[in-house]
Design a protein around this nucleic acid. Structure first.
Length: 119
DNA sequence: CCTGTGACGTCCC
DNA sequence: TGGGACGCCACAG
């Protein structure tokens, strides 16, 4: 289990990043309560040291069937971000509706009401 | 090592 | 309120 590596200060970058940026992003997304949504920028702000694009990139890198509630992450407009690759946005909408998230007549989510963390 | 790209955000008009 | 321009940063090739 606990393998002690002798070469610690030798390698500039570890081959097994225990605390990778993606892991922290996923952990933060996982902390979003059901029935609430957050934004890429907000997640990036909480994680710290990264931009909103990195959060979106991390979401795109998620494998299928993940337990990370990626559908709860939207953009600052309160809209579902359009991704490059095919459908998934439709799936996201359905998942959010299933959680009780309401969309207004413009297809947007009221962040003042469903946003997380709460203001 | 350098370049392009992307599920974004803020500023400005 | 809406749309365009610029900035940002990690990752892949």
């Amino acid at each position: 289990m606990a393998r002690i590596t002798s070469s610690v200060a030798k390698s500039p970058k570890p081959d097994q990043p225990v605390d990778s940026l993606y892991a922290r992003i996923y952990a933060t997304v996982r902390s979003i309560p059901r029935g609430r949504v957050s934004t890429y920028g907000r997640i990036a702000r909480i994680v710290g040291g990264c931009g909103a694009r990195q959060v979106g990139y991390a979401m795109a890198a998620l494998p299928d069937g993940t337990r990370v509630p990626w559908q709860r992450v939207i953009n600052h407009k309160g809209e579902i971000s359009n991704r490059k690759h095919g459908s998934g946005a439709g799936s996201q909408r359905l998942r959010l509706l299933a959680e009780g998230i309401h969309f207004n007549f413009k297809g947007r989510i009221d962040l003042q009401r469903f946003g997380w963390p709460r203001h």
